[in-house]
Amino acid sequence: MSLLEVNGLTKAFGGVRAVSEVGFTVEAGEILALIGPNGAGKSTCFNMLNGQLRPDSGSIKLGGVSTIGLKPRRVWRMGVGRTFQITATFGSMTVRENVQMALLSHRGRLKNLWVRAREQYVAEADALLARVGMREQAERPCSVLAYGDLKRLELAVALANAPKLLLMDEPTAGMAPKERIELMALTADIVKSDSIGVLFTEHDMDVVFRHASRMIVLNRGQLIAGGVPAEVRANPEVQRIYLGSRH
């Protein structure tokens, strides 16, 4: 059984099919890249996977269990971490507190009215931050972070509930080339050590070819190719509609 099994996923907005009959799987320990030109339906696809959007039809199974109709918070509890295209963090908290929030939520302790939140799970939060190289910045307000650091913080937050699957929407957008490589190398390490699956979208083909175990290509809402990077690179249709237009 695959970690994530998607079949016939379809979503239309006002009669326009943003995603049409998309199916793929993600296995534990693999990094699957979802690529495609702007407007191909990548974000729509992502938003269905984590529960923000409800698909019109199709199935999404996580470890064999359907997630259709579940809200993002439920999907998260099933072990799916998420980072956003435009980072979403808690601006009025410190870096560490952002991670602590995820830890508190994971342990079901958010309803507590009495203990000091900032004193909870400090060591664990710091360990997570250390993993993404943010330990030194733990005390800084999140609102002053550089964009690349925010992306790394999001990764730490996404790892807080020991997820089985990470959904990363353009994890390296807005970062310098060197940072991109570092972040994805970091992700690859985590995938290997924790044996989790990653599905990510990306515009930077260097990043994709260097780190993806497999890739699938979306165009106008339809899956047009899939396979290991070398195969996809060689696919003439992909070259025509996607790679060709960019390079």
């Binding site: 923000q52 979403a88 963090t89 808690f90 929030m101 994971h106 309803k111």
Partner: peptide, 25 residues
Amino acid sequence: VLLAPFGYALRAGRDSPLRADAIGI
């Protein structure tokens, strides 16, 4: 309460409903 997890969860919902939802709040 504001310094407790509940208050933090409340602020989390204000700062970023998207992220709050994505970490189970």
